[in-house]
């Protein structure tokens, strides 16, 4: 194999790796848990609208969200737009751009933090599922009486 041919092949391989990396970056899926639970920042308690319509990347969530609710949506890539509309007054709407870190698979998106104009670090937090706790057999509770 001539040096020129080797160089060309190396370039092709490197180009493919670069394209694959780019595709991974723009296509990495994230599960967003849109969360309307109240949030306390400093002394302020932030609340969502009583009923809000949430639109992620131009797609409306299936139903309006009340307070203390969670909806799930799957998105691809790092940059997204979220729009929150108050159902009681459709002129009240907030549109923000979210950037999700590539390796954060499951993310909680706090609607009260976005509406309340909090700093960006409050908008998204990684979702950590509750861990299973091993309880010793003697401490397990058994239901003896039938309902």
């Amino acid at each position: 194999m001539s040096p020129r041919s080797l160089f060309q092949r190396m370039c092709v391989v490197l180009a493919l790796i670069a394209i694959a990396t780019f595709l991974f970056y723009i296509g990495k899926g994230h599960t967003l848990f849109i969360d309307t639970n109240a949030l306390t920042v400093g002394d302020n308690e932030l609340r969502s609208y009583a009923s809000a319509t949430v639109i992620v990347n131009g797609k409306k969530l299936n139903s309006s969200m009340g307070r203390a609710e969670r909806s799930m949506v799957v998105v691809g890539g790092p940059k997204h737009t979220i729009e929150i509309v108050d159902d009681a007054d459709t002129d009240r709407r907030v549109t923000k751009k979210l950037t999700i870190p590539t390796f954060m698979n499951k993310v909680i998106v706090s609607i009260p933090a976005i509406i309340g104009d909090c700093p960006e670090e409050y908008w998204i937090t990684p979702f950590i599922p509750p861990s299973m706790v091993d309880v010793p057999v003697e401490k397990m509770q058994q239901q003896n009486t039938l309902p």
């Binding site: 394209i19 694959a20 595709l23 991974f24 296509g27 990495k28 899926g29 799957v74 691809g76 890539g77």
Partner: peptide, 12 residues
Amino acid sequence: DWGVIGIPGLLL
């Protein structure tokens, strides 16, 4: 496995 979605996923 890597959770790459949509057309970028297919191209990858």
